[in-house]
Amino acid sequence: MTSTTTFEKHRESAQTRSSVALTINGQRHELTLDNRTTLLDALREHLNLTGSKKGCDHGQCGACTVFIDGQRVNACLTLAVMHQDDEITTIEGVGGVEHLDPMQQAFIDHDAFQCGYCTPGQICSAKATLEEIRAGIPSHVTKELTGPIELSDEEIRERMSGNLCRCGAYANILEAIRQVAKERA
């Protein structure tokens, strides 16, 4: 095994910052970042996009959920420097106070949050849940792997389980998602 000293020497001499161009909500941002910067910290600390929340910083709560190239991910567990040329969408890109996305409106209509801290992540996941069902991606509760996927309460609950809500707004989140699903149908 290589000694720790060698590692530390490397760290001191090596280039530990990188330039990266991030495309966020359609806007390109040229940044030079410490390689350690997560996408979440790049958003919150460097771009003042604080809608994506830091609840645990370890992929265990889902408050930081954003879209990368259309797929939902935990922004806390990916490095910003790995997302050159990727299309990133955050809650700010989903909708603003003056132009709410239907899912955001549905969350208000059904009181699908209380403290609001997990909410942006919940909304991103809620939108992704409907897309993933539409795309035919199964889940843990899908009855027949090779059959069509039902847009059932059980499916929604399972697919939303990567977003913790300590205020316990789950029942209302479900209602909000159902409202949007109904509007779309």
Binding site: G96, V97, Q105, I108, D111, T119, I123
Partner: peptide, 19 residues
């Protein structure tokens, strides 16, 4: 009555302490 702070929360613009 729906929450009057709802729009801020669903858009991620309600300012929490660290932000």
């Amino acid at each position: 009555h729906k929450r009057i702070d709802g729009a801020l929360k669903v858009t991620g613009t309600a300012p929490y302490a660290y932000e």
